[in-house]
Simulated scan of single mutants.
Amino acid sequence: MSSSQSILLVEDNPDDVDLTQRAFQRAGFTQPLDVVEDGVEALDYLFARGAHAHRAGEPLPGLVLLDLKLPRLDGHSVLRQIRANPRTRFLPVVILTSSDEEKDLVESYSHGCNSYVRKPVSYTEFVEAARQLGVYWLVLNRSPLPGGSG
């Protein structure tokens, strides 16, 4: 499946980054998967500041896959700042986490996540989840952002 929109993966676990990259490749997605390892870097990427200042003027990713347990700034704080900024307010954000805690689920939705997905344990299930996420958010979903899908 092709789309010019990139995907931003915010994940600090190298094994989960590798698994996500392989799952998206196996599912047939060809768009770039940009990876940042903590919440501060995620915001720098999205708002084109700091080490990511070179991104000024570049389009936002088509999808953000956001882990909750991150160094420097957790996923909930990242999500709140994404939703507070007019430029990123409507950016599709999927929480992709190993947390099965009800409080994380409720807090994620209360701060405006578009979806909450618990990381599947098996590789086969993870590939299928990645395929379904990609199809829905990058192909079927319509976004109010410029260059949005649909």
Rank of each mutant, 00 (worst) to 15 (best):
S3F: 05
S6T: 14
L8D: 05
D12L: 07
D15V: 13
D16F: 07
D16L: 00
T20G: 02
Q21H: 12
F24C: 00
Q25P: 00
Q25R: 15
Q25M: 13
G28Y: 09
G28L: 09
F29K: 01
V36E: 08
D38I: 04
V40A: 13
A42C: 04
L43T: 06
D44F: 07
F47I: 03
A48Q: 10
G50M: 09
G50L: 09
A51F: 09
A53D: 12
R55I: 05
A56R: 15
A56D: 12
G57H: 12
P59E: 09
L60T: 04
P61T: 13
V64Q: 03
L65D: 04
L68R: 08
P71T: 07
R72V: 08
L73C: 03
L73G: 01
G75Q: 01
G75A: 05
Q81I: 01
I82H: 03
R83Y: 07
N85G: 00
N85Y: 05
F90A: 15
L91M: 03
V93D: 00
I95C: 06
T97S: 15
E101A: 15
E102P: 02
E102S: 10
K103F: 13
K103P: 00
K103I: 11
D104A: 02
L105N: 01
L105V: 12
V106L: 14
S108V: 03
H111E: 11
G112T: 06
V117M: 12
P120G: 08
P120M: 10
S122W: 00
S122T: 15
S122A: 12
S122K: 12
F126G: 01
F126I: 02
V127Y: 08
V127H: 08
R131L: 10
L133Y: 01
G134P: 06
G134E: 05
V135T: 12
Y136D: 03
Y136N: 01
W137K: 07
L138H: 11
R142A: 14
R142V: 11
S143M: 08
G147M: 11
G148M: 07
S149I: 02
G150S: 12
